[in-house]
Each structure stands twice: as C-alpha cells, then as structure tokens.
Design a protein around this nucleic acid. Structure first.
Length: 820
DNA sequence: ATAGGGTTAG
C-alpha cells in the first residue's frame, strides 16, 4: 500500500503524518503534534505504527482525497526522496486498487513535481491510457519519455514492450503511438526499427503513423517504397507525396500524381494544390501558380489561408506588390481572413522594394485588425532599420524582441542584427552580441557564424575569424561554401594571397568538394593584385580538376590583364569564353571597355559597344558610366550627350557614378559652375550624392584656389548632416597648408579626429610636409606633437622632412622626441 | 501535411 511504502521508505516520514493527524487522532492513539518542528527527532515505528497504515487508512485517505494529500507540504518534502523503484511499487499497488488512480498519481508526479519516470512506469501507464482510448494523454506521456530518452532508445523500449506488455490488449496502440511519435520527432532510425518490430509481431500500423514516416522520406528516393507499403492511404498520404515530389523539384510529376489519385477514394485536397502553387512560385512561375489557384476554385474546393498566403508571397517576390495587395483584400470575400503571416508577407514585400514606410503601414494595419506581430514581424522591422543604417534603433528593437521570451527562432533576429553591425563596421558590438547569444542559450547556427566570420574577415581580423571557424567546426556546424568564401575573400582583400591560396589548398587536400566560387575568389584576388601568372595557374588547376569555370572566372582574368595594361591578352580571354560554352556577360565587356576608356580610346569602346549589341547583351548602368568616362578622358563631352540620350531611350537614368564622372570632367576643365549645376541636377533627380561627389567638388574648389568657398561648402554639408569621407577633409586641410592658412588647417584636422576618422601617419605626414615647405615651423611642431600624443610614431619620411627644416630639427633634438 | 524572417564572388 502507498502508505506503508511511505512509512518504510521515507526519512522524512514524520512530516507525512501530520495531514492525517486529525484523522488519526480519532482513530488511533499516537500524536504527531511536534514532529514537524523537530525533523531530527528519531521516530521509532513499531509494528503498531505500521498497522495504522493499513487497508483502513488507505481507504480513508482515498476518501479524504489523494489530491489534497499529494498537494500538501508534506508530500512535497518527500518527492526528492522518491526513487524509481518506489514509484513503480506504488504504481503497482495503485493499479490493483484502481488504474485511474495510478494514472493520476503518475501524471501528478510529472505535472506538479517535474518527476522523471522510468520506462517501465511510463509504458505501464501508457497501456492503461491506451485501453481507455485516452490518446491525447497517451501522446503526451510518450512524447515526454522520448524527449528524455533521446535518439536510439527504440531498441530498449521495444524489448520492454515485447517482454512485459505482450499480453495487454492495448499494446498494439502503444506501439503505434510510439512509432508515430518517434517519426514525428525526426527519430528516423528509431521509427524504422519500431516499424520492423511491429511487422514481426504482426501489429497493425495506423495510417497516421505511416504518413508521418512517409513525410520524413518525402524528399528521398525511398518515397515510393514507403508509399506502396501503406495499405490504408488517405488524403494526408496523397498530399505528402505531392509535397515530396514538389520538394524534389518534380512539380510536373506532382501534378500528374495529383491527377491520378483524383480517381481514387478522396480526390485532391487543397493542401496538395498549395504545395504545387508554392513550388511554381519558387520557380518564379507565378502565373502558373495563379492558374492552379483557379483550378482549386473550379474543383469546388475552398482556397485556404495557406493558398492565399502562398500566392501573395509569390506575387511579392515577383515584385507585383499591387496584385498581392489586391489578393489579400479579396480574402474576406472568400471567407478567409488575412492572418499574421499574410501581413508579414506583405511587409516583407514592401521591404524588398525598399519602401520602409509602407512596411510600417502594413504592420500598423495588422495591429489595428487585432492581430499580434510575431518574431517574424519584428525581424522584418529589424531588417528595415538596419537597411536604413539605424543601428541603434535596431539594437533597442532586438533587446525588446529578446525580452519577450527567447524562442528557438530568435537566432534569426540576432543574425539580422549581427549582419547590420558587421556591415557598419561595428564588429566589437557584433562579437559581444554573439557571446550574449551563447550565454542566453541561443546557439548560433551556420548563418550566424558565417555573418560574423565574414565581418571579421572584411576588417582583416583573421585570427578571430579562424578561431570562430574552428569553433564552428568543433560544434559540428559544417562551414559551407559561403563561410569559406568569406575567409578567402577577406584574405584576398587584404592582399594576403599566399594565405588565401594555402587555405584553398588545405580545403582541397582535406577532400572538401570545392565549388567554382571559391576558386573564383582567389583567381580574382590574384587578378586584382596584378598577379596574372598565378591567376592563370589557378585557372589551370580549376579546369584540370574538372570544375567548370563560370563567366566570373573569365571576367577576373580579363580584369587581371587590363590591370597590367595588357589589353590585347584581355581581349583574347573575352574571345575564349565562348570556347567553354559560356556567354560573355556585361561585366566581361565593361571591364574591357574600362581599360580602353581609361586611356581615352573611344573608338575601341564604341567597337565593344557594337559587339555587345550584336551579342544581345544589354549595357548596365556601369557600362554607361564607363563609356561616359572614356568620352570625358578623351575630352569629347559633346558625345556624352549622345550616350545620355541612348540611356534615356532605354529607360535608364545616369547613376551617381556617371554624374561623378562628368562632374569630375567639368572640374578638370575648370568649369566649376557647370560642375555644381550637375551636382544640383543629380539631387533634383533624387540621386543621393556619394562621398566621392563631395570629394570631387571639394578637390575642384581647392585646386583652383576657391578655398573660402570650399570652407563654406564643407560647413553647409556638415549642417545638412551629410555623410562625408575623410578625403573631403584632408583635401581642404592640404589646401589650407599650401595657401598658408594653418589655423584653418588645424581646425579641420581637429574635426577629423573629433569625428572618429581613422587618421593615419600618411595624413600627418601630408600636413607636416606642406607646412615645412611653407616654413610654418610652429604649426609643423604642433602636428608632430599631436601625432605623438595620438600614439603614432614618426617614420623616416617625416623625420627627414622635419630635419630639413633646421628650426624644427633643433626643437626635436632638444625635446628628445626623435626615435632611435 | 501546405505559407512568412537572416549570409551571397565579379
């Protein structure tokens, strides 16, 4: 009996007695009044005491209510002392009394006390529940068991089932539920093991369980084997096959299958159509998806929220936001209401179009309609803030998201934030967020690692990048081509080509399958550094190892030859592209054109333009800017007008780079008013000037001695909060030095430091050099001291310049500032 | 069972 067990097994037995004290006082003589306060008092239980917990008391206890008893303080104190064997004993005894009681006891231990049950007691209760057809409860406790046991537990469970429960009538149901749950929990091997055992024991396998197994195999070639094994197929079976075929990129087969099974019992379901629509949308064939939507209607079926959302999403991705909105607006008429997903899709659609304010409106409407934004909604918002460069706002939002409860999916908003921080160079904050994630139990995944590694590499922080790369490998998160690409790209951009190549070779030697992108990055790295020999050698490795080059591979080689000014060879590479069965791209032509444009060879540029046209390759904005640059270099401005006309004929407007090119040309021919006219024009056209635009104008003003204008220009830009680059300042600083207005030079230089620009020895050197030449020794000294105070040591160049100016030299020697 | 969020060489 439970009471006897409690008396015999618990060290805290004294506490148990008190709930019954009132009961006991009337029935027996012993008192428990003080025992609670004195837990160490040893209590001697004689056989008399044990007798107190006899049938009669158990009976009374039941009358009093186990529930009250077990919820009492006294029982709670006992739970930590419960052992598996005790529970099983109690369960056994309770079973004899009443199965319901034992089930209740079992569940109470789990729900109230978080107790971990043995396999045996769980299976025992499972059989009771199965016999009573209490399937929901059965599912809950078996799921609980499987979570605790983990993968690979099927063997032991099957052993136990067939040895101890074979006689139970309900055992088949327990087996089947176990099969269903292992399959649904993606414990594929366990589910297959159970399935085999069930077949051996000739137990019935439910369609639900089979469907779940089929679902796990839907993306593999075992799909049909599994399908054929199922005797009692239902709607789910068919829709799973349809979905599987869709995911295997076999939409046509899916459609055929759907048509065939129309003749069988149930007819096609909306779910199957949804899978097919989703597939066509992903292939970019929204119109086909739409026609299936019509088919659904024609079949007399009702498109679900899913159907609508799938199509709305397809339309958004295809850029047809108007049509997407229209469809969403018609949902109510079809008897379905837009849900959070619908609004998220629309919000993302606007985000893709860069219409951030509309993203806001969509979310507002969603809230107005009483729907709650979810993690995904917030993630889209977060993307928007990051895209607008509002990193601090993003950080606040992320904090807000995370404080709403850490879901497993919260890794994604963190990744968005990581990406935002990395892109704005705030790598330290990215790293601390990364650590914070780990500390909060959010395990960074492949994407999160890749983003941070990419960010580190871009800044040349390779030690840390390699460290994280190793860490992710150790955590069995396998780097993919992008992660590796980030490492290679970073190394190449820092000019560390030997290291990049060593890394690439190490990947080859460890047997990783390398895709062409990784080779392309290193080939491009060689080409950009003017190492055409190495680029060609690696290209040879590519072709010899059976990897197919892409146009990008050849484009890098073209660039490489252009870089070393061997345009002839570059041209030969262009012609060679077709020999590999590839088509030259706009980049191929533009790169070559750029080489000709740089030396003002407009005839060659024109030739290439004609060739492009003949090949049916459309010029890009970049191509046009190169053509215009060529004309500017050659001084044929009148022809620029012609090209600009061609552009507008094609519906293209010149981009910022093109404007910059022409503005630079106007500056170079001293027509500053024309230059500023163009500057105003580009603003009128809603083209944001780039930092380079300001630099060009600033340089132009300074070059022709309009320094006061340049000062005013800088001031007004600062007032407008324009994003200026360091160059705008240094140009002006140099001009003031040359002109002999060191005060202004100092003023601007201090601003440069104030605004947190990375001021290097080159910048100090440029100023000191010019000041010394103008014999402005005191100012030169000032900058020299400033440099030292910022922790920068003078190099040989600066010392040489300073020494030449004898006054300064004496000062340096005197102050002992010269390095060894 | 079917829908929505994060990385991306030139």
């Amino acid at each position: 009996m439970i009471c006897r067990w409690i008396v015999l097994n618990s060290s805290k037995v004294s506490r148990i007695l008190s709930p019954f004290s009132s009961l006991l006082s009337s029935k027996s003589s012993f008192s428990v009044a003080k025992l609670d306060d004195e837990p160490n008092t040893s209590t001697n239980f004689s056989s008399d005491h044990r007798d107190c917990f006899d049938q009669e008391i158990l009976f009374d206890m039941k009358n009093l209510g186990f529930r009250e008893y077990l919820h009492g303080q006294h029982f709670r104190g006992l739970v930590s002392d419960l052992r598996q064997t005790h529970v099983e004993d109690v369960m056994g005894e309770l079973m004899a009394e009443s199965p319901d009681l034992s089930v209740w006891f079992f569940k109470e231990l789990i729900d109230v006390y978080g107790f971990r049950h043995s396999r045996f007691s769980t299976l025992l209760v499972s059989h009771i529940l199965a016999a009573q057809r209490r399937f929901n409860e059965l599912q809950v406790i078996l799921q609980h068991l499987l979570q605790e046991e983990g993968s690979g537990s099927a063997y032991l469970l099957c052993e136990l089932l067939s040895s101890s429960f074979r006689e139970w009538d309900s055992t088949g149901l327990v087996w089947d539920m176990l099969l269903f749950l292992t399959s649904r929990s993606k414990m594929v091997d366990d589910s297959l093991y159970i399935l085999e055992k069930m077949k051996d024991l000739k137990l019935n396998v439910s369609t639900q369980a089979y469907n779940s197994i089929l679902y796990n195999f839907r993306q593999t070639d075992k799909l049909w084997d599994m399908y054929r094994e199922i005797d009692a197929k239902n709607e789910h079976t068919y829709s799973t096959v349809v979905d599987g075929l869709c995911r295997q990129q076999r939409v046509e087969d899916a459609v055929l299958f759907l048509r065939d099974c129309e003749w069988e019992d149930v007819g096609p379901s909306v779910v199957s159509f949804n899978s097919i629509m989703s597939s066509y949308c992903k292939l970019g064939l929204v119109d086909t998806a739409k026609s299936f939507f019509c088919t659904v209607l024609k079949c007399g079926l009702v498109p679900s929220v899913y159907s609508h959302n799938i199509l709305i999403n397809g339309l958004c991705v295809a850029g047809s936001i108007g049509e997407a909105l229209e469809l969403a607006g018609h949902m109510s008429q079809r008897g379905v209401e837009p849900d959070t997903v619908t609004y998220n899709i629309l919000a993302k659609g606007f985000h893709l179009l860069g219409m951030i304010s509309s993203v806001w409106e969509v979310i507002q409407e969603m809230v107005d309609r009483g729907l709650s934004p979810d993690v995904i909604t917030y993630t889209i918002l977060l993307c928007g803030y990051c895209q607008l460069g509002n990193i601090d706002k993003s950080l606040r939002l992320l904090k807000d998201i995370l404080s709403r409860g850490l879901e497993l999916s919260s890794v994604i908003p963190c990744s968005v934030m990581l990406s935002g921080l990395c892109k704005t160079g705030r790598i330290d904050e990215a790293l601390s967020l990364f650590y914070e994630m780990k500390a909060n139990g959010l395990r960074p995944d492949l994407v999160a690692y890749s983003i941070v590694i990419h960010g580190l590499c871009r800044l040349g922080e390779f030690d840390m990048a390699v460290w994280l790369y190793d860490e992710m490998c150790n955590k069995r998160i396998h780097p993919n081509s992008r992660t590796r690409g980030a490492m290679l790209l970073g190394l190449c951009q820092k000019g560390m080509l030997l290291e990049a190549r060593a890394f690439l070779d190490s990947l080859v030697s460890t047997g990783s399958t390398l895709d062409i992108i990784l080779y392309n990055i290193v080939i491009d790295g060689y080409a950009k550094s003017g190492c055409i020999e190495e680029a060609l050698e690696l290209f040879k490795v590519v072709t010899e190892s059976g990897v197919t080059p892409t146009v990008a591979t050849f484009n890098s080689l073209i660039y490489g030859y252009c870089k070393i000014r061997n345009i002839g060879e570059a041209r030969k590479i262009l012609d060679g592209i077709k020999l590999y069965g590839l088509v030259p791209s706009a980049v191929s032509y533009t790169t070559l054109m750029n080489a000709y444009a740089n030396c003002g060879n407009t005839e060659r540029v024109d030739d290439l333009r004609r060739e492009m046209k003949a090949e049916g390759i459309s010029p890009t904005d970049f191509t046009y800017s190169v053509m215009i640059k060529g004309l500017c270099v050659a001084g044929k401005l009148e022809k620029c007008e012609e090209v600009l006309r061609d552009m507008s004929d094609e519906g293209k407007t010149p981009d910022q780079i093109t404007y910059n090119t022409v503005i630079q040309y106007q500056c170079s021919v001293k027509d500053l008013s024309k230059a500023f006219e163009l500057f105003e024009e580009m603003k009128l056209r809603n083209l944001d000037p780039t930092p380079a635009t300001y630099n060009i104008l600033m340089d132009g003003l300074c070059l022709y001695g309009y320094i006061e204008d340049a000062d005013r220009f800088l001031c007004s830009l600062q007032e407008q909060g324009v994003d200026l680059s360091k160059f705008a300042y240094t140009t002006l600083i140099k001009a003031h030095c040359v002109k002999g207005d060191p005060e202004m030079a100092v003023k601007h230089f201090l601003q440069l430091l104030d605004r947190g620009f990375d001021v290097t020895i080159r910048d100090y050197s440029a100023v000191i050099n010019r000041l010394c030449r103008r014999r402005l020794a005191n100012e030169a000294k000032f900058f020299f001291s400033l440099m030292l105070s910022r922790g920068i040591s003078p190099d040989l160049d600066i010392c040489r310049v300073m020494i030449k100016s004898s006054d300064v030299a004496a000062w340096i020697f005197k102050s002992g500032l010269l390095p060894d």
